[in-house]
């Protein structure tokens, strides 16, 4: 579902507007799979499946594949509805330069939860 992130985020005008000051590359780890998500002014300009040698990123948000699957259900179960629940319970890790992540936390949380809408539509 992570592959659908560009269309989900870019198609949400309010979300893009919220991220208008965000331009960076973040790494999203889904289990062993790494995805480089390039954001430009709130829009996802590119999503590349790693590993990509020597490709820098500002911060990484990783969780095991089951945690993401649960996170993207229309009604996540307790302990899976938030990225910080992942980290508290040892299912996820947030690392790197956290300043842009924290300064735009609502944007990143909503962008990374966007695949939930696919499950709701299914």
């Amino acid at each position: 579902m992570i592959e659908r992130l560009p269309e989900l985020v870019n198609g949400d005008a309010a979300l893009v507007r919220r991220g208008r000051l965000v331009s960076l590359t973040m790494l999203v780890g889904v289990g062993e799979q790494d995805y480089y998500v390039a954001v430009e002014a709130g829009r996802i300009a590119a999503l590349a499946h790693g590993p990509l040698l020597m490709r820098p990123w500002r911060f990484a948000v990783r969780a095991d594949a089951e945690a993401w699957q649960e996170h993207w259900r229309p009604m996540p179960r307790p302990a899976f509805c938030d990225l910080f629940a992942f980290t508290k319970f040892g299912r996820g890790w947030i690392e790197g330069d956290l300043h842009p992540f924290m300064a735009n936390l609502r944007y990143f949380k909503e962008a990374l939860a966007a695949p939930r809408r696919l499950a709701g539509a299914a």
Binding site: C81, F84, H99, M102, L105, K109
Partner: peptide, 23 residues
């Protein structure tokens, strides 16, 4: 993170605790 000039405290606090609200 909650109290520094280069992060909007209100925006951050709300975004942090948003995950504690049941869906």
């Amino acid at each position: 993170w909650l109290n520094r000039a280069d992060v909007n405290g209100g925006e951050l606090a709300a975004a942090l605790v948003s995950g504690l609200v049941a869906p």
